[in-house]
C-alpha cells in the first residue's frame, strides 16, 4: 500500500462524489458516478483487494452505469437541484 497514491485516489473519489450530487444534468451526474466507481476500483486494487476491484469494475461501474443511463433516457434528464 503506497500512501501517496492512496491519498491522491481518495481525493479524486471525494471530488467525484461531490460533483455527482451537485451537477444538475442527470446524465452527466450518472457518468461522473461511473468515474467515481472506477476510482474506487483503483483504490481497492491498490489496497490489495483484487477480487473486489474487478467485481466493482464490471458490476458496479459497468452494469450500474448502463442501468442508470437506461432509466434516465426513459425519464427526464433535467433536475431542479
Amino acid at each position: 500500500m503506497i500512501w501517496q497514491l492512496d491519498l491522491i485516489l481518495c481525493i479524486f473519489v471525494i471530488i467525484c462524489a461531490i460533483a455527482a450530487i451537485t451537477i444538475k444534468d442527470l446524465l452527466a451526474a450518472v457518468i461522473i458516478l461511473g468515474a467515481y466507481s472506477f476510482f474506487m476500483c483503483l483504490l481497492w486494487t491498490e489496497m490489495g483487494a483484487v477480487d473486489v476491484a474487478f467485481t466493482e469494475a464490471s458490476v458496479g461501474a459497468g452494469v450500474g452505469t448502463v442501468l442508470f443511463i437506461a432509466a434516465v433516457s426513459k425519464t427526464k434528464r433535467r433536475s431542479k437541484d
Partner: peptide, 27 residues
C-alpha cells in the same frame, strides 16, 4: 436532494463508502 435519481446516486455513494471501510480494515 429533491430529485429521486439524485437520491439514488447518494445511496450508491453511501454503499461504496461502507465497502471502503471494510476493505480498509483488511489492509
Amino acid at each position: 436532494k429533491k430529485n429521486l435519481v439524485k437520491k439514488l446516486i447518494g445511496m450508491n455513494i453511501f454503499q461504496s463508502a461502507i465497502i471502503l471501510f471494510y476493505i480498509s480494515t483488511g489492509v
